[in-house]
């Protein structure tokens, strides 16, 4: 029986879809059977990020309303054998599905897959309630901004009230230089308020945008820091103990010199 994990945040645009795509790819690369579920009905994104948009025939609402069978709606990834996507409907809204149907769907999916990862829409209304209905655990994504952290705190409260205990935190778009200058919340600042386990910290990285625009995921990019961060998070999800990596970019004359003489 597989595990159902919801990726949520409260605030929009902090990196839920990016996280879902990268964790899914990372887990599939580790030979796990993974199904990604786009629960952002009406604002379908996950298919685009994975470069699978043109393969969609049926969607999640077709499944819950019995228009097609679950198996028919699942799209196989082009790169990873074990990776599948259940796309959102684009022409419906969040009320087209209810929490009970989502629970049933998750029960069915967990029979087939090692991991079912649900990409939650922003907000705390029905879309959120649908997305968490069938989940065993939750990952909360935030950026180091006061408003995003506030919303993350709200979401953690709602998750706990829904009996999704011990959610894990991913801090996304972290910029060590700004933190050092005192212009951005530090990991400690966020931990002081949210006080939940940290699953990982993903730095701000233009490679995320570059890969996303090509329908690829940065977790497959060996050279980028953000890719390394997502690989570490993937291993932690599988239960490995991986220390937090150093996010400081090498800078200054010395490393510039080393670069010049080809040491790094």
């Amino acid at each position: 029986m597989g595990e159902v994990i919801v990726v949520t945040s409260g605030k929009g645009g902090v990196g839920k879809t990016t996280t879902t795509a990268n964790l899914g790819t990372g887990l599939a690369a580790a030979s796990k059977k993974v199904c990604l579920v786009d629960a952002d009905i009406g604002l379908r994104n996950l298919d685009v990020v994975l470069g699978l948009e043109n393969r969609i025939v049926y969607d999640i609402v077709d499944v819950t309303t019995g228009v097609c069978r679950l198996r028919q709606a699942l799209i196989k990834d082009k790169r990873f054998e074990g990776l599948h996507l259940l796309p959102a409907a684009q022409t419906k809204d969040k009320t087209a599905v209810n929490p009970e149907q989502m629970k049933e769907l998750c029960e069915e999916l967990r029979k087939e897959f090692d991991y079912v990862i649900i990409d939650c829409p922003a907000g705390i209304e029905q879309g959120f309630r649908n997305a968490i209905a069938g989940a065993d655990r939750a990952i909360v994504v935030t950026t180091p901004e006061v408003s995003a952290v506030r919303d993350a705190d709200r979401i953690i409260g709602l998750l706990e009230a829904a009996d999704l205990r011990e959610p894990k935190l991913i801090i996304n778009r972290y910029r060590p230089k700004m933190v050092n200058r005192g212009d951005m919340m530090s990991i400690d600042d966020m931990n002081e308020i949210l006080a939940i386990d940290l699953l990982g910290v993903v730095p701000e990285d233009e490679q995320v945008v570059v890969t996303t625009n090509k329908g690829e995921t940065v977790v497959r990019d060996d050279k980028s820091l953000s890719g390394q961060a997502y690989r570490n998070i993937t291993r932690r999800i599988m239960g490995e103990n991986v220390p937090l990596m150093n996010l400081e970019e090498p800078s200054g004359l010395f490393s510039a010199l080393r670069k010049m003489i080809g040491l790094k």
Binding site: R150, D151, D153, R154, I156, G157, L158, E160, I193, A195
Partner: peptide, 24 residues
């Protein structure tokens, strides 16, 4: 427990919190 953003306690009497009271 900690009261998180969006959570509230109304009480006719004294309130003691064994945790934080977060912003919101």
């Amino acid at each position: 427990r900690t009261l998180r953003s969006g959570q509230s306690v109304y009480h006719d009497g004294n309130v003691v919190v064994l945790g934080d009271v977060n912003p919101g």
